[in-house]
Simulated assay, not measured.
Amino acid sequence: MNDSDIVIPNGAHIAQVRKSCGLTQAQLAKATGYSIRLIGKTEQGKGVRYSSLVAIADTLRRNGAESVCASQLCSDPETIARQFVEAYRWHEQNMISEVRHLISDDLQVFIAGDQTRIPFAGNYSGPEGLQQFLDRFFGLLERPDKNALTLKYYTNANEVVAYGTEFGRIKGSDTSELTWLSLLFRIEGGLVVRFEDYFDTAPAQARVEAFREKINAWDEEE
């Protein structure tokens, strides 16, 4: 993101963080060197330069919001999708706390695959449903290299598609597999309202079934 890029701020989140820091709009404006009008504009979700959000984030950090950064104050669809993916990359099963402010209470989640063959496939609702999916996913799989997730982003209005590959393996296995995946995000009002996860389901199903057969064989031997 370049400082001169025009971005759409997540106004409600900016106002929330400002208030948690005990600042009025006037105080935030004075501390950043901007006008009250510009602060009001960001909190109304109107387009501003990314450099403005950098300055606002710096000021909020100095006033107690230690973890806030400029990208977290954006609500343009691609930025939100990237934040979601980066939370998954680094925090995995615990990602929701990092992006809860970007997830709709009415979030709908679809994970491709045959539910009888892939335990985490299916439909989920709300942040709680997303957590249920993550628990099932990381209960079965692990990602040995968090940097191995490589995606390209394509945006059309309020929808973002992230397409690429990552390495993963079934827990207990020594072999990591390269899997392609395509992630669809639908963003409304600065929030993710729908998330769809498509991946190379046939090989994934085969790997799960092979692993189950191995476990069953071990059980029979005992």
Rank of each mutant, 00 (worst) to 15 (best):
L141T: 10
E142G: 07
R143K: 10
R143N: 09
R143M: 05
P144M: 09
P144G: 02
P144T: 04
P144A: 06
D145C: 01
D145W: 01
K146H: 08
L149A: 08
L149N: 09
L149R: 10
L149V: 15
L151R: 08
L151H: 10
K152Y: 15
Y154D: 13
N156Q: 15
N156A: 14
A157I: 00
N158P: 02
N158E: 11
N158H: 11
E159N: 07
E159R: 13
E159K: 15
V160I: 13
V160W: 10
V161F: 13
V161N: 08
V161E: 08
V161M: 12
A162P: 05
A162Q: 13
Y163C: 15
Y163A: 15
Y163V: 15
G164D: 14
T165E: 15
T165D: 14
E166W: 09
E166T: 03
F167L: 11
G168V: 04
G168C: 04
G168A: 04
R169K: 14
R169N: 08
R169L: 11
K171E: 00
K171T: 01
G172R: 00
G172Q: 04
G172W: 00
G172C: 02
S176C: 02
E177I: 13
E177M: 04
L178N: 08
L178Q: 07
L178P: 04
L178W: 10
L178H: 01
T179P: 02
T179A: 02
W180H: 11
L181N: 11
L181Q: 14
L181H: 13
L183A: 08
L183H: 04
L184N: 06
R186T: 07
R186P: 05
R186W: 11
R186N: 11
I187C: 12
I187T: 10
I187H: 12
I187K: 07
E188S: 13
E188R: 05
E188M: 06
G189A: 00
G189L: 00
G190P: 00
L191M: 01
L191P: 01
V193W: 01
R194F: 01
F195E: 02
E196I: 01
D197V: 05
D197F: 15
F199M: 08
F199T: 03
F199K: 08
T201C: 08
T201S: 07
T201K: 05
A202C: 07
P203C: 14
A206D: 01
